[in-house]
Design a protein around this nucleic acid. Sequence first.
RNA 1: GCGCCGGUAGCUCAGUAGGAUAGAGCAUCAGCCUUCUAAGCUGAGGGUCACAGGUUCGAAUCCUGUCCGGCGUACCA
Length: 547
Amino acid sequence: MYDEIIKLSFQNCLSKLNINEDVDIFFEFPKNPNHGDLSTNIAMQLAGKLKKQPRQIAQEIINTIEYDSNFIEKFEIAGAGFINIKLKPEFYAHSLNKIYSFGDMYGKSEKGKGSKVNVEYVSVNPTGLLHLGHGRNACIGDTIANLYEWMGYDVTREYYFNNAGNQMNNLAKSIYARYRQQLDNPDFPFPEDGYHGDYIKEIAAELIEKHRDKLITDDEDNLTIIRKFGEVWCFGKIKQTLERMSIHQEVYYNEDSLYADGKIKDVIDYFKSNELAYEKDGALWLALSKMGLDDDRVIVKSSGEPTYRLPDIAYHREKFLRGFDILIDIFGSDHIATVPDVLAGVKALGFNPEKVKVYIHQFVTLTENGEQIKMSKRTGKNYTLDDLLDEVGPDVVRFFLLMRGISTHLEFDLGLAREQSEKNPVFYLQYAHARLCSIFDIAEQKGINLNKDIDFNLLQHEAEIKLIKQLMNLPASIETACNKGEPQILADYLRELAAAFHVFYHECRILDAGANLCNARLALAKVTQIAMKNGLLILGISAPKRM
RNA sequence: GCGCCGGUAGCUCAGUAGGAUAGAGCAUCAGCCUUCUAAGCUGAGGGUCACAGGUUCGAAUCCUGUCCGGCGUACCA
């Protein structure tokens, strides 16, 4: 938003010079004060296309450009062809005034208005408890959903699950074995590929409490009861854990319904009738080689059961049919293999695969004192997301899982997370917010009220200008984080915002600055408070009034 | 073997639609509280951007190759 007026000047200037290349005019606040207040590399961008020297283009631009002299003091060419812009203080006053007028909604955009987005995340089958990797998936998905909402999109948060098939049978058998071990036979054999986690023992104990020995014969009826019991138990725990992190998904989509409603059959029929599927060795193969991929894959096994690819494709088709314009999938890196197949399938069904955005995050490792904490499945001593929430609380968990780029392996430092001190980065942000709240509390006690007649031109201190610049960046930060699917960009922005505020707080007295300056600084504090609160809200982290 | 992700300060990580002197947090060292919250602020030291070539005015960023780590590579999901 800070560059709207200036960008327009540049656009007009370029068309005046008959330069019609398709380039985005991009401005930044240079770190080095010698490089002006705003800077653009547009002349260098154009140099290659126009086959001219960047400095020459820059010169032509500043000779030709018409600009608002109320805001811009001068242009300078520097380095290889940067155009550095020296702004007048009025520019910041004007910008801050505009931000102030947005009130609580600062950061909200309408750019996505009218567009429906489906964000699918977590999507863990009800066979166990959530662990750290799921937590990362959940926080990324939830935050991306928040980002899209703030961009004005109509967002649906969705959880896709499967409560049928092999894995659920495996769960039932695992519970049954523990049930027998606890009930009558400590040596009852445990299935080789069963679920080893301790939670299975808990389920079995509850099963005994409820059914006593009535399920002792392992017939199909009893296994069905056990399976359902396990499913309900696991789902209850999963939802409870998500609830603790303030994650609410409005749609729980059951894979099974794709079969019941004939959607799977529809897709098979479509592929068959378009000669994209064929029978071989008793199985049905999808001709991915006709869709630009290397190998054909089985979509219905010779046993008659579909492989995961088929329902995944049908599910994406269904989401398109439900009217979504953008489909977002959040996957862990272990699901990378499904992506090309699903996208090819979606394309073959006549939908635009570019509307499917797949964000794949890497794994999480838990460390303490530099040593990795093993989460061995063999021993069953999984460190669960709930354990972590118990230990450090939801704000720390969310921030730690969001503060890294999604494609980086994330090291969760338990020691640092546990630290209830200035070392813990999440408190840095929350502390800024608490300080802001405290200022307004004390102002109220002193009978100082923010009045509407604000002279933003009084804000000329270096710390004030830096804070205003940072505040101006919020919308761009949200938009970039959204477009790139990178919550980390917002987390990083908020850290910089907090830093700019803390410096301002340290350098500039607010309440005893004299009536007019006090009022202007209070307004600046107000905007900062809103920006910080909204940013934390998007990350799903609380904004405490006191610490 | 092949595919994807990563390798940047002691540690954890930003920066990769090519741009100005490669940044932040933590750790280390030196300062700042009778003042709106010191969970804060100021300063210092710390780099072969894994390695080797290439592309050009300019490369951490793009291309090629190599090495190291993670995840995949099923008629498992």
